[in-house]
């Protein structure tokens, strides 16, 4: 399985501010009642984006000027809470290709990487700078450079960290590990043979 080498993401950005944005907020539980991930995009941030009657609440994702953004900016501990892959799936199905935040919850980070979504960590000040540029001109082109671990926008360059194992997996096109794991199956048998509870 040849996977795309994800070396950089270029696009417009939108900021959904806040710390500790949890997976229940990213995709409310009722959207988990599905047997495929295909239509999850519409549930993204639903309860903070929509009123009970389906009309819009004030939310960055509802603003016409940010439509088509492919880079999501946010605060600290983004994606905390449940292990549901529905959260990164909803982000991806909505159209986002990368997430920039001060930090990420671990399972969320891993789930994103496996889907080929780079999660780049940047400082609060730098995220605020990008957000300010985007606020001033929503058409600002933002480049997440996964190789150089930097973000370029409006003539500025700031540092962005993508943890090493994830960076390696993304830039070398092995973010979905299934091929490599299947290659290891003969070795799995050797390990399993030493574990009585597995072989019974």
């Amino acid at each position: 399985m040849a996977l795309e080498k994800i070396t950089s993401i270029t696009g417009r950005a939108v900021c959904v501010p806040g710390n500790d944005i949890d997976t229940d907020r990213i995709i409310p539980a009722r959207y988990l009642k599905c047997i495929t991930f295909d239509s999850l995009g519409e549930g993204l941030f639903y309860d903070v984006r929509k009123n009970a009657d389906g009309t819009d609440k004030p939310h960055p994702l509802n603003e016409a000027r940010f439509k088509g953004a492919t880079i999501l900016l946010s605060g600290a501990n983004f994606g905390c809470g449940s292990s549901r892959e529905h959260a990164p799936q909803a982000i991806q199905k909505y159209g986002f290709k990368a997430v920039v935040a001060e930090g990420f919850a671990e399972i969320f980070f891993g789930n994103c990487t496996t889907l080929g979504i780079p999660c780049a960590a940047a400082s609060r000040e730098d995220i605020a700078r990008i957000a300010a540029a985007v606020e001033k001109n929503p058409a600002t082109e933002v480049v997440i450079d996964v190789v150089k671990q930097e973000i370029r926008f409006a003539g500025q360059t700031v540092k962005a960290t993508v943890r090493e194992a994830a960076r390696d997996a993304l830039v070398n096109g092995r973010w979905d590990p299934i091929g490599e794991l299947l290659d290891g199956v003969p070795a799995v048998k050797t390990t399993a043979a030493k574990l009585p509870y597995v072989t019974v």
């Binding site: 988990l32 009642k33 292990s83 549901r84 892959e85 529905h86 090493e164 194992a165 994830a166 390696d168 997996a169 070398n172 092995r174 590990p177 490599e180 794991l181 290891g184 070795a187 799995v188 050797t190 390990t191 399993a192 574990l195 509870y197 597995v198």
Partner: peptide
């Protein structure tokens, strides 16, 4: 631990896998 993968992570054997209807 089965082996080390190219990105430095470990291929870890999972002896018990539990599943439910949602995920």
């Amino acid at each position: 631990a089965v082996r080390t993968l190219a990105n430095g992570q470990t291929q870890l054997l999972i002896g018990t896998h539990l599943i439910h209807e949602v995920t």
